[in-house]
Each structure stands twice: as C-alpha cells, then as structure tokens.
Design a protein around this nucleic acid. Structure first.
Lengths: 224, 224
DNA sequence: GGAATAGTGTCTGTAAGACACTATATG
DNA sequence: CATATAGTGTCTTACAGACACTATTCC
C-alpha cells in the first residue's frame, strides 16, 4: 500500500509596523532540524476530528495560540516537496493581532520569529510558495470582505482599521468611501463610551466585531 | 503509525437545458458498491505527480474526459466520512460543455449520470456537502470571472454565453453591460467569418477563448 | 484659541442599467 | 417587406472619490 505522509501546515499572519508578517518556528526534528519553517505537524488520526482540528492542535502546541480566524488555504502534494517521500499538506492560514503574538511570543518554549512576507528568505519544503498563496488570498479577500478585521485586535478605531486595509492593499483609501463600506458590511458595533488614542486631538470611537460576525466574514457587493 | 485513507474526488459540472448538472458514476467497489457517487479514487504515490495528477487520472479512467478546466476546491477529512476509517479527500471541480459529456457518455463502459445540482438525491460519504461547496464556488466566481466560459464549449456566441451566465447566477443580465464586461475582460476572440445559429433572423458572431486565456481565468474589477 | 485628528455633508465624475435604434438574416 | 434576433448609441441613475467643513480633544 502507498505510504503517504499526511501533515497540516499553518500560515500565521499578523500586521506589525504596517508590514504583513508570517510566523516561523525552528523545526525541532529532522528533516531541516533547527531551520525556520511554517509550524506544522502530522495528522493524528486517533485524536484529530479532522484536518482543521489538527491545525488548531498544532497552532496550540507549537505557537500557543488558540481560536484565531482560521481558514483552509489549499492542499499541497507530491513526491518532491518533502525528502521523506510522497507527502501531502493541508494548509490553513490564521490571522491574529500583533498583541496576541507578542503575548505568547515570550512565554512559549518555542520562539516565534516574525518575518516580513515581502522579504522572505529561502525556506524548506515548498513553504515559500505556500506563504505566497496565503498572502495572495488574504490581499485578494481584503478587497471585498471584513477579513482584515482579524488583524486589528479585539477593539479598534475606524482610522486604525483603515490603516490595516491600506497596509494590505498597498495604497491609500478614500476615508468617506471606506466608512460607507464598513457601514454597508454592518459587522461593526460601537464599544460603548470607550474611545481610542490619546493626544492633543479628538479621540476616535472604538469598535469591535459584532458577536455574530466573529466566525463568518461579511462581504461587499462591489469591493472597496 | 496512523493509517489515513488518501483519495481524490471530482465534481464534474456541466450545463444542460439551462440547469447546472453534476456527473455521478455507479461505484464499482465497496463501500457503497453500485451506488451513484462522485468519481474518485485513491492517490497512487508511485504514479501520480501530485493530487492534481491523481484527479486528472481519475477523470480520464472513470469518466473518459481529458483536459477540462480543473481547480482544487478543498480537502475534506475526518473519521466519519468514510466507513473504512479516517480519510481525507482532496476535491477538484471540473467544468465541461455538455457536448463533451454526451460524446463520452455513450462510449464509456461506465455510464455517466447527470443530476441537477438543485435536485440532488441522498449521496454516500459527504458528497452532497462537497457538491454544495463546488456549486457555491462556481456561482460565486461567475460573478467576477470568465469561469462560465468553460461550460459553453469551444465556440459560442455572446447571446449563448450570456444565457450561461444567467443560468448560473439565476436572473437576467443587462445585455449592454454584459457585453461591456466581456470586452473588458478581453479573453474572447472572434472566430473568423463563422457565425452561429440558424433561423429567420440575424446570425450572431462566434467567439472562443483566446489561447492565452484557456488555462487562466480573466477577472473583473467590479463584478458583473 | 491653536493644533491635530475624527467624523460628515455635498459636489463631481465614472460606471452600470434602461431603452431605443440600427443591422442582418429568413421566408 | 414582415419578423426575429444581433448588436450599438445614448440617456439616466447610482455609486465612488474629492474636498471642504464641522467636532472634539489637549495644550
């Protein structure tokens, strides 16, 4: 019978200083021991409810992160991508705010390394191609959905959210249009009374995702 | 070591009499022998270059169809979807014109059964959910891409193509806008001198996909 | 009141849809 | 020339972006 290596890999993305960054970990086993790569691991048929469950488990065990926005990207396969043999990796991408990453970044035994996705070094396996596809998917979906909200943390102001969208899409957005569109998607609610920012100027209203939109994206008819 | 069952499944879609249909085959082995289901099969690590290669092989062996538009849909996995154990299926969807299906439908040993996707019966495994996702994906992508062209055959007129888009999206489209959009995508070229249709009226110009657009979709900025 | 950023009202330009007209085939 | 469908010119409507104005905070 064919022996096929079944794994999951995770593209954990966050936004730091206006740049999209991917989380890499040093591999703790051969092949490529001690080399930076995407967090990943074998599917455990006895304990994982499905591939998504395996992805959540890997994310928790290796990056100490729970319950981010998580979506299946694609499955990569073939005889050449892993030196151990014909392999298959079901890849998920996750979005988290930088605060979450920095909280766990210190605590964990495994040190998370954040790398700008536009300045990637050589990576083992086909991890560069995988990250490329994840970034394309994120940037594309950002044009017509609430996806970028998951990079913004729990509470955020509209100017902050606009800067997130602008960082992803590369270019300035019209303030009036942006706010019309966010309102049209209807996934935001005001955080009562609370205001963001300090400084010698008017503070901005804080918002958060409505509970019913925490798991499911909002979509726009015609993009931003 | 975990034994995980690795398969590919195919959602072969076509448009017949204005209705989107999925191709089903009687299974030739247990489980569910002689029951209608999606064409599928094990990945053969020795011969398949990757999962896409396995999908093309299955499509050729079981449905006798080569070189359709083929795109990965998603991977479905878990302990319950296949009675044989923890399994994983990398699902691809393919689009072909009804002419292609009907040509091979007679020749093959395996009889293809076309079923309206909106009138599906109970199916084995999680094939109903898989088909549902494929249809959603097709209908969604039809809003802003040239995807429906692959359902229209090699040569087609603009009125025919508009009827294809309308069948997928459920609703009438504005003729002027539709033609502006097709022109904007720039993936069509006139088939010289040839005209479609007969009848007591002006015949329509035939078009086909430009060679450089046969593999890659064209996209619209703002949808139809 | 000055400075700085948040938030909104309104005008303008562009793109989509409605409609009507011309074009070209058959009988 | 009647009829039926293909294909286009143009007007109207709706939406996105530009711009300017008001709002609110700290100093």
């Amino acid at each position: 019978m064919n022996q096929i290596i079944c794994t999951v890999d995770l593209v954990l993305l966050t936004l730091k200083e206006g740049a999209l960054q991917v989380a890499l970990l040093k591999r703790d086993k051969e092949p490529f021991k001690d080399v930076l790569a995407l967090p990943g691991g074998f599917i455990h048929a006895e304990e994982d409810a499905d591939a998504r469950g395996a992805a959540l488990r890997v994310l928790k065990e290796k990056a100490h992160i729970t319950a981010p926005y998580l979506e299946q990207l694609a499955t990569f396969s073939g005889p050449a991508r892993d030196p151990r043999g014909w392999s298959l990796s079901i890849v998920y991408y996750a979005l988290v705010s930088i605060d979450i990453v920095e909280q766990v970044g210190h605590s964990g035994r495994d040190q998370i390394r954040l790398v700008d996705v536009d300045k990637l070094m050589q990576l083992p396996f086909d991890h560069q191609a995988i990250i490329g596809m994840a970034v394309d998917r994120l940037r594309n979906k950002s044009q017509y959905s609430s996806l970028p909200c998951y990079l913004a943390g729990e509470n955020f102001t509209l100017p902050q959210l606009q800067r997130v969208y602008e960082a992803l899409m590369g270019g300035e957005l019209n303030k009036v249009s942006f706010r019309r569109k966010m309102s049209e998607m209807g996934m935001l609610e005001e955080v009562d009374g609370r205001f963001g920012l300090a400084g010698a100027h008017r503070p901005a209203q804080l918002y958060r995702l409505r509970p019913e939109h925490r798991e499911h994206l909002s979509l726009l008819e015609r993009g931003l």
